[in-house]
Amino acid sequence: MGEFFTIFILTLDATLRVATPLVLAALAGMFSERSGVIDIGLEGKMLGAAFSAAATAAVTGSPWLGLMAGIVTSMCLSMVHAFACVTHHGNQVVSGMALNIAVAGLGPTLGLAWFHQGGQTPMLGHSSRFTAIDWPFAKALADVPLIGHIYSEIFSGHNIIVYFAMVAVPVAAYVLYRTRFGLRLRAVGESPEAVDTAGISVAGMRYRALLITGFLCGVAGTYLSTAHSAGFIRDMTAGKGYLALAALIFGKWKPVPTMLACLLFAFADAVQIRLQGVELPVIGTIPVQFIQALPYVLTVLLLAGFVGKAIAPKAIGEPYIKER
């Protein structure tokens, strides 16, 4: 029983590590989509941020400068998306996809030109990464049953971006539901005409929403290359942007349910890693292939069976053209 509990706690610990980029990217997507702009380009923005964060950290040795570079890159990409979709009424899916493809090629190409390591960035040393922060007394309390375990494994010992993601959810919820900006943002996604009639610039709101999207994606990408691993590798986002988008729909475009969806995906992934090669009572060892399909099977089952109808913001995907 004691051992089972330990494994459970450690799985939750891994869940937090895996969920962090998903939560940040899904929140990023929420701001964009709530303002009426589909953002399929989360993947590309994260990848771009991951590359420039790793490249900057490798050259300067500072993870903070890496974070800045990641955020700036991601925001720039977001602005390209905004320029194409908001200013020029372009197709939002096409623009997002174009960003994904462009970044997937551009990152390794620049990496090859700068570092000559086959499109990767050099491996980052300890001081140029975001490393685990141990909370006070975590080591001392680790042996205290239950509470000590939970405190030292789940709360303590993560890097700063994990904590940032934890804080980002309530902050995003507050901004969305309790501020004037949030009200206008939601209105722009539901009924841009009404917002326009009230004398607020629809384009201006959407640009601002996409800036926030860029910021959050930048942090998510930086996490991938400078906190969770140590350096940029080709296609390292591995579909996390799309998974975040799925979590967003799963969570009905609301911050807390979206976060829960991300945690669920991450939990399935963490369980998947830990179940491999473990002898289970009765069943015995489950084949690797089956275990690895688990998160996807779970997703399909949950999406098909347990979630009610997800209703998207009404004006999503439609460029707003002012009547003259």
């Binding site: 450690l10 891994a14 590590r17 691993s229 590798i233 591995a238």
Partner: peptide
């Protein structure tokens, strides 16, 4: 070519 997964497996 999946170092993130490799890291998680090692940690487990």
């Amino acid at each position: 070519n999946d170092p993130t997964k490799g890291g998680e497996l090692a940690r487990s």
